[in-house]
């Protein structure tokens, strides 16, 4: 039937939102290099100015600024607010320019640093398995 019936099979992300994704960005899309300029793990945090402005924000902008009182990645934001990743990228950049969010793009040199990797290894080793045993310190 050509009546817009969804294809069979489970829908991986639930029903489609009533508003088309890029309407909220006024049709703007993150550019092709967005994965490099704002990777999925990029952290966003609400600023004091963002909190002050919260009452004047609406819809997605309100949701983002409210959610980012706790730092989170743009991937978490997109999932929790059910927005397309690239919509979050565009809106986060807008809110950063307005001073309402800070956007912390991870520095690849910092994340690949040996001391960071050692801290990750030590931190993971301390995670107990389902029997409560930490990893062997081999």
């Amino acid at each position: 039937m050509a009546d817009g019936t969804p294809p069979p099979g489970p829908d991986p992300v639930g029903p489609a939102p009533a508003v088309r994704p890029f309407l909220v960005t006024a049709g703007r899309v993150a550019d092709a290099a967005s994965g490099r300029s704002m990777p999925v793990e990029t952290q966003v945090v609400t600023t004091a100015a963002g909190l002050d402005a919260l009452g004047r924000l609406s819809f997605e902008r309100y949701d983002i600024v409210a959610a980012c009182r706790l730092p989170q990645s743009i991937a978490e934001l997109a999932a929790r607010l059910r927005l397309h990743l690239n919509v979050v990228r565009v809106l986060a950049e807008d809110l950063r320019e307005a001073g309402q969010l800070t956007v912390h793009v991870p520095d690849a040199e910092a994340t690949h640093d040996a001391s960071v990797l050692r801290r990750l290894i030590d931190g993971l080793r301390a995670i107990p398995d389902s029997r409560g045993e930490p990893s062997d310190t081999d």
Partner: peptide, 24 residues
């Protein structure tokens, strides 16, 4: 875009420095 520094003024929430995110 360049990495930005969090504001140090304002409420405690605004001064939160996010963790360094490492991706696998």
């Amino acid at each position: 875009m360049t990495p930005t520094e969090p504001l140090t003024r304002g409420t405690a929430a605004a001064a939160v420095r996010p963790p360094l995110p490492v991706k696998m």
